[in-house]
Design a protein around this nucleic acid. Structure first.
Lengths: 231, 231
DNA sequence: TCAAAAGTGTTCGTAGTACACCCATGT
DNA sequence: ACATGGGTGTACTACGAACACTTTTGA
């Protein structure tokens, strides 16, 4: 008979957000850890009749009032025997993405008041190994942005290419040329023009054409960067 | 108090092997499932003071007599409440790779006699969701072969480029030109010449130069196929 | 009419592929 | 010598990056 092991899910949920000043940056959703000044990732134990992805979504709803998660995928399993004190607990971590136009609103849950978005480059102290999960989530996100359509889960329903390039820039940590981004993503069929145009900015300028992602689920668009199969 | 949940590890371990006739193909390691004609992936419960990767290695040793696993990485978590009967069991699956020059020898373990390698294109019936894990392992392997040095874990210590191209071909499922493979892998610094030459084949021919992988652990060699950071 | 932002076109570098041709060995 | 496989060289293609130039709006 195997020793009893507790299982929990942890979600590293990212969103591109505008700080009070300065350019938009990548943020991660955290909840206050009991009483003190440290923070933790949202998550908890799965229910009896629930798989882990459903558990992750449920905890995001109850702990943060967040229901509009556009993408959720497995990240890793944390299984070190001493990763948390007292009870041996194995954590299954998830990467979640929220579109830019989803408002913060942590209301709707009693615990919501204790949730907040943090700039990924200025994180508070995180308990246990939760910082590892955030770091892994960031690198997974950056990697997949370049060979999949994953940005669909960070972008609003319709967007100007300059806005999309801001989103890529925030998620990757370096500027992305909106001109070439359009070319790459249209060639791959990732984004399509809607035919509509947006409002011009506060300081004048030509009004932008609006685009959409062709799919609203993950599609690998550039599977074989090299060693591709013969045509 | 959360419901008791069992945890197990499952390993999909691959090796490129020569069948009795025909070209080398990718094989996966299976063990006979209790009594009947179906098969399962090696694995089982983790020990009290053991993380899951260690548990996976231990079960491979005891169930298959296999100790020389050159690479082991997490694949996925299977958490459907009804994936196995009776006890709710969450499985953490691993991808393992064994170099081509490691012999079969399932001896050294009492259960070893029940282990065998199967061509991935001619699998027997697998219990529960184990076939999913094999399929996921194959696609993960194929993907990473093109942008990492992962083939180090499938190739022998020294090899001719034609042999390496056989290995790539078996793992990918389509032929890979050995000429260009050398160019791509040397430019990236993945393989280096040893300066030695091998024996010429049975039917004559120029003796091949022998190469080695520069690293014996996973290195991402082509992280940004596109959207690369400015230099 | 000028500034600001969007979009188009052009050039350039480079990685990957295909394939012809040359080299070294055993029989 | 010649067949057999290994290795080198070269040309072609395509994609991505950089950047100049044109277009469209608001003030």
């Amino acid at each position: 008979m195997p020793t009893s092991i507790a299982v929990e899910v942890l979600s590293a949920v990212f969103q591109v957000r505008e700080p009070d000043e300065g350019p938009a940056t990548l943020h991660v959703l955290l909840v206050g850890a009991d009483g003190g000044e440290s923070w933790r990732l949202p998550g908890g134990a799965p229910g009896e009749r629930e798989n882990l992805a459903a558990a992750a979504r449920r905890h995001l709803g109850s702990q943060c009032g967040l229901t509009r998660v556009a993408h959720l995928e497995q990240l890793s399993v944390l299984s070190d025997p001493d990763r948390v004190p007292v009870t041996r607990t194995i954590a299954s971590s998830y990467l979640g993405l929220v579109p830019r136009d989803v408002p913060a609103e942590f209301t709707g849950s009693p615990e919501g008041a204790r949730a907040a978005w943090f700039d990924v480059d200025h994180l508070p102290g995180l308990i246990y190994d939760h910082a590892e999960v955030v770091a892994l989530g960031r690198s997974r996100l950056a990697g997949k942005l370049s060979y999949t359509n994953l940005a669909f889960a960070l972008a609003p329903a319709r967007f100007a290419m300059s806005e999309l390039s801001e989103i890529y820039g925030a998620a990757l940590g370096y500027p992305v040329d909106s001109t070439n981004l359009l070319r790459v993503l249209s060639r791959r069929g990732v984004v399509v023009a809607t035919g509509t145009v947006g409002r011009t900015g506060r300081a004048g300028g030509r009004p932008p054409a609006l685009y959409t992602f062709a799919d609203d689920e993950l599609v690998v668009t550039d599977e074989f960067a090299t060693l591709r199969p013969p045509p």
